[in-house]
Amino acid sequence: MTPRPAPTARRVRLATELRKLRERAGLTSTEAAKLLGTSSGQLSNVESARFGVSPERVRAMAHAYTCTDQEFVEALIDMANDRTRGWWETFREVLPPTFLNIAELEFHATALRSANTAHIPGLLQTTDHAREIFRQVVPELTRSDIEHRVNHRLQRQAVLEQSVPTTFRAVVHEAALRVPVGGPAVAKHQLQHLVEQSEREHVTIRVIPFAIGAYPGSGQNVHYASGPVARLDTVSLDQSHGPVLVDAEAQLEMYRVLLDRMEHVSLEPSKSRDFIHHLLHDL
C-alpha cells in the first residue's frame, strides 16, 4: 500500500465507505484486521485514507464484512482501481483543495442536479459573469487568483461538453436571474447563455418565479452529484468559507426530496425558457 499524503475527496470517500462497512458488520478494527490478515494499524491507515487500497483488498474486505450488495461493492472496486489524474490537478498549487474536490466530484458523477437561489449555477456561468462573482469575494482576491478561479470554473463545464455529456438539471430562482452581475451587457449575455443551454437535450433549467412565494429549500444552494449507486451520491453545499461535502445516507435522502420538491414548484422547462426570454428582453 502506498502512502498518500494528500488524499483526494474521492479517496477519502472510499476509505469512509470501507469503515462504514466494517462498522455495519459489528467488527472492531482489531477483529477485522485478523480476518483480513493485516494489522489494526494498517487497517486504520486505509480507513483514514492515509494509505491507498487495491481492488483485491476492497473485494476481500467486502467479503469479510459480509456485504451482499454486489453493485455497491463493484462501485467501490472501481474507485480503488481509478488512477485518474484529472485536469484539476494543474490547479493544486494555486487553489484551495475544495475547488479540486468539486471538479473531481463532477467528473465522476453519473448525473448532476442543482438548486440556486442567489447565483447562476457555476456550470452555466459565462466567463464575465464568473469573473465578476470572484471579484466580490471577501477577503479580496488578487487578479491572478481571480483568473485561476475563473479558468477552473470554465474547465468544470467540460462535463456538459464531452462526447457523452453528463445530464444536468438545474433549478434557479428568479432572484438569481434578475441580479445584473457585471452590468447590463454581462447580464444579458448570461441570460442568453442560459437560454441556449436550456435547449440542449442533456440540460434542464427550471425557474422558480417570485410569484411562487415560500417554497421548500428557500435560501439554499445545493449541488447534487449522483454516483454509480445511490449510496455513493454526494451533496455540495455552498458556504462562505467554501463548499462542504455531505454524504450520510439520511442527508442524501433529505436533499433528494428537497430537490424534487423545488422542481415540483418550479416552472416546466419550456415555460422556464420563455420566462428567461422575457427577462432578457427587459434588459
Results as ranks from 00 to 15, higher is better:
Glu268Leu: 13
His173Asp: 00
Val203Pro: 10
Val257Trp: 15
His119Pro: 06
His108Gly: 09
Ser44Asn: 02
Pro209Asp: 00
Glu147Val: 13
Glu253Asn: 07
Arg11Met: 01
Arg131Lys: 13
Leu279Cys: 01
Tyr224Ser: 03
Glu263Phe: 08
Arg231Cys: 07
Asn116Met: 13
His193Asn: 15
Leu141Ser: 10
Phe275Cys: 03
Ile120Trp: 04
His241Met: 05
Ala214Ser: 11
His129Glu: 05
Asp238Thr: 07
Lys271Ser: 15
Leu194Lys: 05
Glu268Cys: 07
Gln42His: 13
Val235Pro: 07
Ser270His: 01
Arg13Ser: 14
Val172Gln: 00
His241Phe: 12
Glu140Ile: 13
Leu160Asp: 03
Asp282Phe: 09
Pro139Ser: 03
Arg13Leu: 15
Thr84Cys: 04
Ala185Tyr: 01
Phe91Lys: 00
Thr90Asn: 15
Glu196Leu: 12
Met1Tyr: 13
Ala176Phe: 10
Pro3Val: 15
Val179Phe: 10
Ala211Ile: 13
Leu100Gln: 07
Arg4Glu: 15
Tyr215Arg: 02
Tyr215Leu: 03
Pro139Val: 08
Arg83Pro: 11
Gln70Ala: 02
Ser144Cys: 07
Glu23Asp: 08
Arg135Val: 10
Arg273Ala: 01
Arg19His: 08
Ser226Ala: 06
Val195Lys: 15
Ile77Leu: 10
Leu123Ala: 02
Glu17Arg: 02
Leu100Gly: 00
Tyr65Thr: 11
Ala130Trp: 14
Leu252Asn: 06
His148Cys: 07
